[in-house]
Design a protein around this nucleic acid. Structure first.
Lengths: 137, 137
DNA sequence: ATCTTAATACAACTTAGTTGCAAATATATA
DNA sequence: TATATATTTGCAACTAAGTTGTATTAAGAT
């Protein structure tokens, strides 16, 4: 089930991801676009864009869903299996371009790895007066 | 806010973790104990046992909360920052006794790492007729 | 035995995410 | 360009995990 038609709503969602280089939580996106489209539509479009390998999803620190643009994915293979970093202060999430080596685990076959690192991002580490971001949800 | 009193409910919850060597999802535990105590009570007891360093929590593949017994924790230091393994077939979750090396990330200070590996556990890998476990939720 | 305070049950609530269906709209075809 | 048809959307209702307020119950200290 991929995107079949180039609709206005699909375009608005894609524009949001082109403007923001970091990841966006579904909650934030629904809120940000609530005057332009229904939340059901946001959920459905994100779902389709992921199927098409245009976005990838992962869970943030509260178990809420986040999406970010894929770089080398197709609809059949999602290569964006990289760690994500979430700032515990402002809530911002970034995709990390690093490779984490998973050791072999006896008697088990690992197929997916979900790695969320939490800490302070550069901005929050430097500023003494932390400014809580709306994306923290 | 730790456990202050040795109540019947606290005892029942602890017994559940002593009988099951793997992790238990809150959903499964609430269901399992629903005739013995209210779900609010389960949530509150788990919360307190975590504060006391007796249990540790983490998120499963759907973002739902799981708990497991701690081995070397105190109420001040949670040392159980280890990866967890969830079977994509039967849903069972285990704590992994391995160390995953997180590379240094420029300009960020990593404080917490949350690693969930998914794949087939030994039982499910060997059996051709997969048996879906109730814990899969 | 009594008193104080923490723990519990229960109901109501919050919120992320889903579902069913009627109406709207993109696009293929004539 | 007009029409047909299948997808997309909005809306309302729903589901389910987790939380909160409050009256009642029960630990355990005195």
């Amino acid at each position: 089930m991929g995107v079949l038609r180039k609709t206005k709503s699909v375009d608005i969602v894609l524009t949001a991801f082109n403007q923001d280089t970091t990841a966006i939580s579904v909650i934030a996106l629904v809120e940000q676009l609530h005057s332009e489209m229904n939340k059901t539509t946001v959920y459905r479009i994100l779902n389709k864009l992921e199927d098409d390998g245009i976005l990838h999803s992962f869970l943030g620190k509260n178990g809420h869903k986040w999406y970010a643009k894929c770089h080398n994915c197709s609809s059949s293979v999602h290569q964006d299996i990289h760690p994500h970093f979430q700032c515990i202060n402002c809530g911002k999430v970034e995709c990390l371009d690093i490779n984490v080596q998973i050791p072999n685990i006896p008697n088990r076959k690992v197929e997916v790895s979900q790695i969320l690192l939490q800490g302070k991002c550069e901005d929050c580490y430097n500023s003494q007066k932390p400014e809580h971001n709306v994306n923290a949800k």
